[in-house]
């Protein structure tokens, strides 16, 4: 019953995601229609073929599309759209897990300082005169992990990590790192604009390279977190109850915390701090499919992908492009307040 519901919802949302991706790929300065977009994508598909000479990659389609259109779709628009989908997917996954984990409707992926840590790493890299391939996402990723792990260590005594302590330690560390960021910005000089732009959260710098890094990480972590969906349900009963029901609470908490922190770090590293996706998408989906994480987690993740692709399309529709973080916050915050007024933001 639950499984078929989950599959139906996931199939529907995947179809919606495909539609949004196609629609998004038609948006931009060059006028390219849906048909050309679809054909360009199909032309780019490569399928493995297992022959005598090992695996060969075969491109089964060769539709007749204008070369310029195909290049624009495949090298400019598609990586950005896919990266948006991956980031949205990752943030909504992490948000769902964190809200369940903290039993707090205001929890979001950055609650234990991961995003702020990423920001410190990124801003430091931007203002330092260094050039390393993938240096910026790498610096952000490392900053995120150091901050997340630091908060975890601070909040842990005798092998136990009380959720309330974790929350407070997260707030304190975020405040401290905020001060570090402000100080660095003060001395950023010429890099100030780049640093601020990064902090706003954007998908401007998307490349296939970033897609290839982020995708496997996000997929693997999502599968791990999904495997713990039932444990998350039981944790909602309270930690003592969960323990007596056979859940190794502290170990499960560590896995959930690490999984959601790394998936967030992967997202933030390639896109900067994009707020509200991880906060409101899980709430929206909880209203629709209910609180069971076995269905909530996959549907939230897909809805997060749809949401971020759609908002990023809006962000690049205007005459001058906006960082998508501005759009998600501008759309997300009023919507969240609306849900709040209707009392539909449920206590967990």
């Amino acid at each position: 019953m639950l499984l078929s519901r989950t599959l139906a919802w996931s199939a529907g949302l995947t179809a919606l995601l495909v539609a949004v991706v196609l629609a998004s790929a038609t948006v931009g300065p060059a006028d390219i229609g849906v048909r050309e977009v679809a054909l360009s994508i199909l032309n780019g598909l490569a399928l493995p073929s297992f022959g005598t000479g090992g695996i060969r990659w075969v491109r089964p389609f060769a539709f007749d599309v204008s070369g310029t259109a195909e290049t624009i779709v495949r090298t400019i628009r598609l990586p950005r759209i896919l990266l948006g989908a991956i980031v949205g997917f990752a943030l909504a996954t992490a948000g769902t897990v964190m809200q369940g984990f903290f039993r707090n409707p205001m929890a979001d992926p950055s609650i234990i300082g991961v995003s702020t840590g990423a920001a410190v790493g990124a801003v430091a890299f931007i203002i330092l005169p260094l050039t390393i391939p993938f240096g910026l996402p790498l610096a952000a990723f490392c900053g995120a992990l150091v901050a997340g792990f630091g908060v975890y260590l601070i909040a842990t005594t005798d092998g136990r990590t009380p959720v309330a302590t974790l929350l407070l330690a997260g707030v304190a560390v975020q405040t401290f790192l905020g001060a570090v960021i402000s100080y660095m910005l003060l001395h950023a000089g010429d890099s100030l604009e780049r640093a601020v732009y990064w902090l706003m959260g954007h998908l401007h710098a998307s490349t296939w390279g970033r897609v290839r890094i982020a995708l496997p990480l996000v997929v693997v972590l999502f599968v791990v977190l999904l495997a713990y969906a039932r444990d998350l349900n039981v944790l909602l009963l309270g930690e003592d109850d969960a323990q007596t029901l056979g859940i190794e609470v502290e170990r499960t908490k560590r896995i959930l915390l690490a999984g959601s922190s790394v998936i967030t770090a992967a997202a933030v590293a390639v896109s900067g701090v994009i707020g509200f996706v991880g906060l409101i998408v899980p709430h929206m989906m909880r209203l629709v499919v209910g609180p069971d994480h076995r269905i909530l987690l996959p549907t939230s993740a897909l809805a997060g992908a749809v949401f971020l692709v759609a908002t990023d399309t809006v962000a690049r529709m205007g005459p001058s492009e906006l960082p998508v973080g501005i759009v998600t916050a501008a759309l997300g915050a009023p919507f969240f307040l609306y849900l709040l007024r209707r009392q539909e933001v449920h206590a967990l």
């Binding site: 309270g238 003592d240 109850d241 609180p291 449920h346 206590a347």
Partner: peptide, 12 residues
Amino acid sequence: TVPQETTLSFDF
């Protein structure tokens, strides 16, 4: 164990 009080306020 049947606990003394559980905040079963969620919608399961």
